[in-house]
Amino acid sequence: MASIGSITDVTPGPEALGRARRHAGLLPDLLVESQRIVASVTAGWHGRRRRGQGENFWQFRPFVDGEPVSRIDWRRSARDDHVYLRDREWEAAQTVWLWADPSPSMLYKSAGAGVSKESRALVLALALAELLARSGERIGYPGVLDPVSARNAAERIAAALVTARPAGGFPATERLKRHCEFVAIGDFLDPVEETTARIDRLARSGVRGHLVQVFDPAEEDFPFTGRTEFRDPESGARLTAGRAETLAQDYRRLFHARREHLAEHCRRLGWSFTPHRTDRLASEALVALHGRLSGAPAAAGGRG
């Protein structure tokens, strides 16, 4: 199934036009919310810092065979028995592509969540655009907005999304070039083989990626009991469980195994993976994602 929940939890698939109108109406409020979140977490923050060509000192790190000897810092190396390189900070603007999954399954919102998965994904995308634009990065949105370097990048994305509603599913990524970064925010409930194949292609082309899996608390906890009818929002297929609680243990095991499979696949590619529940603060995911973009390692475990 693409999503879980009672039959009243998800907007029916044929109402695509109504969904698009509601989506457009939400965007101004989501933009304001994203700006509020950014303001709440950026006190004392600076732009992303990373190793590269520049004038400013970045860090010392151990010398590895094959690297230029000219970059060895002999003064630092003389302090102990190790040889160190002196890295500089990368100063050139980088292109970061953002994408929030518009699939029907993202509309799901249980009683335990204050927002739908779609709303949270869009807030995170807009907040990240706001944050990165302040650092001078070039921001793009596949199929919606070509990369721009502007302080109002978040506003431009929101305005473009009002009229350029992307189709569901993974976006077209032909425009993504080597050394750019791609942030995909969605529930990733397509067959896992399809998702891994898509990110494999991007990784082979030299794109560095970050997946943020947004999920409703009911999708992780499976709180359903008694006779419950579930419906796939993508196809309309229905499943009726006479005693839903009997499915809970197997469901939770499969849910966590699937998430761990995606996380491990991302680790093998050098990508980051951030899980995020919609009953948690959006600022938690934003801080974690900013850390991944800055090169910080992911914390072990955690529910996002």
Rank of each mutant, 00 (worst) to 15 (best):
T8I: 10
D9H: 09
G13S: 14
P14S: 04
R19D: 11
R22D: 14
G25N: 06
L27K: 02
P28L: 04
L31Y: 00
V32H: 07
S34E: 01
R36E: 13
A39F: 08
A39Y: 05
A39V: 03
W45K: 09
W45F: 05
H46E: 12
R50L: 10
R51W: 02
G52W: 11
G52H: 04
N56L: 13
W58D: 14
F60N: 13
P62Y: 03
P62L: 04
V64G: 02
D65V: 07
G66K: 06
G66V: 09
E67Q: 10
S70G: 15
R71M: 12
R76E: 06
R79N: 05
H82L: 11
Y84F: 12
D87Y: 08
R88Y: 14
R88G: 10
R88S: 09
E91H: 06
A92R: 15
A93P: 08
V96K: 06
W97A: 01
P102G: 05
P102D: 08
P102W: 05
M106G: 03
Y108S: 08
Y108A: 08
Y108L: 05
S110P: 05
G112T: 04
A113Q: 03
G114V: 04
R120A: 11
L122A: 03
V123L: 08
A125T: 11
L126G: 01
A127Q: 08
L132G: 02
R138Q: 10
I139W: 05
G143E: 00
D146V: 10
D146Q: 13
S149W: 00
A154Y: 03
P166V: 12
P166N: 12
A167I: 11
A167F: 12
A172S: 13
A172F: 05
A172V: 15
A172L: 08
E174N: 13
R175A: 15
R175I: 07
L176K: 01
K177C: 02
F182D: 00
L189H: 08
D190R: 06
P191I: 14
E193H: 14
E194Q: 15
T195M: 13
T196I: 15
A197L: 14
R204I: 05
S205Y: 03
S205I: 05
G209V: 07
H210P: 00
L211K: 11
V212N: 08
V212L: 15
A218F: 10
A218K: 02
E220A: 15
E220W: 13
T225D: 12
T225E: 14
T225I: 06
E229W: 13
E229H: 12
D232E: 02
E234A: 03
E234M: 01
E234S: 07
R238P: 00
E245G: 08
E245Y: 10
E245K: 09
T246H: 12
A248R: 13
D250N: 09
R253T: 12
R253M: 09
F255W: 12
F255P: 04
H256C: 07
E260N: 11
L262A: 03
R267F: 11
L269M: 13
L269I: 10
G270T: 07
W271C: 00
W271I: 00
H276K: 01
H276S: 12
T278L: 02
E284D: 12
E284W: 01
A296C: 03
A298L: 14
A300F: 04
A300N: 04
G301F: 01
R303D: 09
